[in-house]
């Protein structure tokens, strides 16, 4: 069964796009509902978990694009806007801490970071997906990195 096999993995995806576990669970349920409804559209030209991940990410992005921001309740910290490159954080750091820091980032940076670093998408693909110029994608990525670095250094 798809849910039993992939639920944890998809939950990890959801948690990267949501601020807290409750929002992630909402996204998980919406995503799996969509997966089951659209399973007929899966043509088998990629791995099922890859396809499912795409479904979940698209769902999260669509919700955000439609202005509902159902899964994100960010309280923007203005100090992050002025963050500068600080000393590097150790290479090894607990994943939970990284996720917690990621969740403090403004949505626009968090999404680009996720798509670029985790989903291995190019700036061109990100720009197309988000409907933004490539330059914006690049600047959001580097700004997001700086902010995340700042946050991780603070901890």
């Amino acid at each position: 069964m798809l849910f039993e096999k992939y639920a944890n993995r998809m939950m990890a995806v959801c948690m990267r796009y949501c601020k807290n576990r409750d929002d992630a669970k909402d996204l998980l349920q919406d995503g799996f509902y969509k997966v089951y409804v659209n399973i007929g559209k899966f043509k088998g030209d990629s791995r099922i978990d890859t396809w499912m991940t795409r479904v979940f990410i698209n769902l999260a992005l669509n919700q955000q694009r439609q202005g509902r921001n159902k899964y994100s309740h960010f309280e923007f910290d203005p100090a992050l806007e002025t963050a500068v490159e600080e000393s590097q954080v150790p290479e090894e750091i607990a994943p939970e801490k990284v996720l917690a820091a990621l969740n403090q980032l403004p949505e626009i940076y968090k999404i680009v970071l996720n798509l670029y670093a985790v989903e291995d998408m190019s700036h061109k693909e990100i720009a197309k997906k988000l409907g933004i110029p490539i330059g914006s994608s690049k600047s959001r990525l580097s700004r997001g990195r700086v902010m995340l670095n700042t946050l991780l250094n603070r901890k």
């Binding site: 639920a7 944890n8 993995r9 939950m11 990890a12 995806v13 959801c14 948690m15 990267r16 576990r21 992630a24 669970k25 998980l28 490159e85 590097q88 954080v89 290479e91 750091i93 994943p95 939970e96 990284v98 996720l99 990621l102 970071l113 996720n114 670029y116 670093a117 985790v118 580097s142 990195r145 700086v146 995340l148 670095n149 991780l152």
Partner: peptide, 22 residues
């Protein structure tokens, strides 16, 4: 570029964390 290690941290964090169990 010095901050590219952030990407690696994110990739590692993208593995199923303990609190992601459903």
């Amino acid at each position: 570029d010095k901050l590219q290690h952030i990407d690696n941290l994110l990739r590692k964090a993208s593995q199923v964390p303990a609190n992601a169990l459903v």
